[in-house]
Amino acid sequence: MASIEIDGLVKDYQNRQGKQTRVLDGIDLSISGETFVSIVGPSGSGKTTLLNIVSGIESLSNGSVRLRAGDRDAKVGYVFQDPRLLPWRTVTQNLRFVQHDRSGWEQRAQHYLDLVGLGHLGDRYPAQLSGGQQQRIGIARAFSVEPDILLMDEPFSHLDAMTSRSLREHLERIWLESRRTVMFVTHDVTEAVQLSDRIVVLAPGGRIHETIEVDLPRPRRASDPAVAMLQAEVLARFEVMEAAA
């Protein structure tokens, strides 16, 4: 079983004048098993920084982060805000590039491309695809490494509402099939409610404001009354937090 254990995580940035700014302030978070956790919060609350530290892209100033899968280090997949595909490689070659385990990679790649509905576009170059298609390739790429833990950084934020809604449904379907441990950063409460088992709200200053359990049946639709009600409740809590800040 995969897990993310974050203890007392602190991240400080230093500007050119030597002044320190704290962007994450004592984050304690434990995520384990087949759980989909969303991190939400206003701009500047440190959501992306938290994800980058968990993935190892950025260093931390204090505290600890452990990604485990049983008694070994967890394998991680990452979906970025923008697709970050190699423009000089075809779709299939992009998926091949991230494989640690090359045995059976073609079947895996084809399987996840089929799941995102782009199994027929493996020979295309990224620039021949739309933004939504590129992002779906990014999702397929992350799943194709068969990660123990999947990290996602606002993957639908650059897309229009219709494409984003369609991709959320794709993502939920793939996740229900593969059941990874997911840490999903978003500023979109609808997205968080529709996809998550748990929502962690970050407050300005990089502290955890509160954690909300989402106990709704899946698959969910944004138009479901229960989803809409919870969404309204989370937004109301956001307003309270912002008023207090």
Binding site: N52, G56, V76, Y78, R84, V98, V145
Partner: peptide
């Protein structure tokens, strides 16, 4: 070289030789 691609390589734990061959060289 696009810094975003380099961060992608780090996130997927790509070896330096792969980064050289598939990112820097092209």
């Amino acid at each position: 070289v696009d810094g975003g691609l380099l961060r992608m390589c780090r996130a997927f734990d790509r070896r330096p030789v792969d980064v050289m061959r598939h990112v820097y060289l092209p």
